[in-house]
Design a protein around this nucleic acid. Structure first.
Lengths: 205, 205
DNA sequence: CCGCTAATTGACCGATCGTTCGAGGTGGGT
DNA sequence: ACCCACCTCGAACGATCGGTCAATTAGCGG
């Protein structure tokens, strides 16, 4: 795999990242349609034709950005291990994953904006990928619910509905963190959110 | 106000509604940008010029649709009365409002799709209106939280954060109801959601 | 049946945008 | 010094779309 360290190849990859980063910002600011190739190449300081040497279309950059984001996010989300006695307690695993995910997303504002607002792109394929990603997360949540209910850790609820509610809650919180000019510390937010999700808002009694 | 029952005037209003309805479906299916005037007038069975006799621009129809939706929704959401002893219990008021809102939204799928997915329109004014509407709802939720905390009904939480979480939860649930091909009865959903919101998902203990 | 107003129509315009491509530059190997 | 492969550039193209307007039709009171 000497090709991977070939300096020319490295420069190409770097250029690609540069374009993707510029595009990410522009997409976040203007949305998929509002983002013009002009704005992207202006921000990336390259010419029109150069853009098309690295990406075959506008949709292709968008897809690449989504793909990378999803890979990054997937790396932070996995099944909670309940049987393995060596693993940390479920609540601890849960907290760690939520923490890592939220931290990652909040650190990259343009990306967060992109993910949250990219509900309707006329690019059907990109929209479908986003849907698939969220469906995957929702599925993970649903299974977590089912497991939790089986072992008596969780109350009996419609797993599908609860998963949708939880996913929506996370989205709402991220949106709030993005909106705030001086967002509170992530660990404090996670504590509050987990409290609300697990115990609800009603006073104990 | 005899002009309001003038048959000609009535026909005009009807035509307006017809166009708005067609546009609502097209916007929901294709998003703001993806919705072409062509698609709208085709669905409304009118000519291009006719459209511009009733709306001065594409953005204008979009705004009109949003305005009407927001008025309809606002009519179903108001402060929960806690001091008035003649009013129903807070939980009952809450249930009624959530019920009425969810029912209204779910009955009009295109509208729901429109509201949920219209995160980023390049039409800045329309996007701002949507933001304002959701900000209003969030504000209502936040104040409800604060009131509930004052009278000891609710646990102590960050009101702003909890409001964002609750709003996100509602959005998530609506999205799920829209997605389902055979959505469950609304009152069952409301019961489940209120349970999760108030008591959380953790088993009591 | 006439005449007039108001409604309706669709060909057309200008602007914008994504994409293409041939000309010009660059740099490392010999 | 030369070459050649590769990269970079931006003017030009074609398609699409929102919006306009002069021509046509419909409806109706006299």
């Amino acid at each position: 795999m000497a090709a991977t360290v070939d300096p020319a190849e490295r420069a190409k990859q770097e250029r690609r990242r540069q374009i993707m980063n510029a595009a990410k910002h522009v997409f976040a600011e203007a949305g998929y349609h509002g983002a013009s190739i002009h704005a992207i190449i202006e921000r990336a300081q390259i010419a029109r034709g150069t853009f098309y040497l690295y990406f075959e279309s506008k949709a292709a950059v968008f897809d690449s950005i989504l793909d990378q984001a999803m890979a990054d996010l997937r790396a932070r989300i996995h099944r909670i291990e309940v049987d393995d006695k060596n693993a940390p307690a479920p609540q601890v695993q849960l907290r760690e994953q939520v923490m890592a995910t939220l931290d990652f997303v909040v650190r990259d504002r343009p990306l967060a904006t992109l993910l949250l607002s990219a509900g309707h792109t006329p690019d059907a394929e990109a929209a479908e990928r986003l849907d698939q990603f969220f469906a995957e997360v929702r599925d993970l949540l649903r299974r977590a619910m089912e497991s939790g209910m089986e072992i008596g850790l969780l109350r009996k609820v419609d797993p599908e509905l609860a998963a949708s509610a939880m996913l929506g809650m996370i989205r709402g919180v991220i949106e709030q963190l993005i909106r705030a000019e001086t967002p509170p510390a992530v660990d404090v937010v996670v504590s509050e959110v987990l409290m609300v999700a697990l115990r609800g808002v009603l006073a104990t009694g």
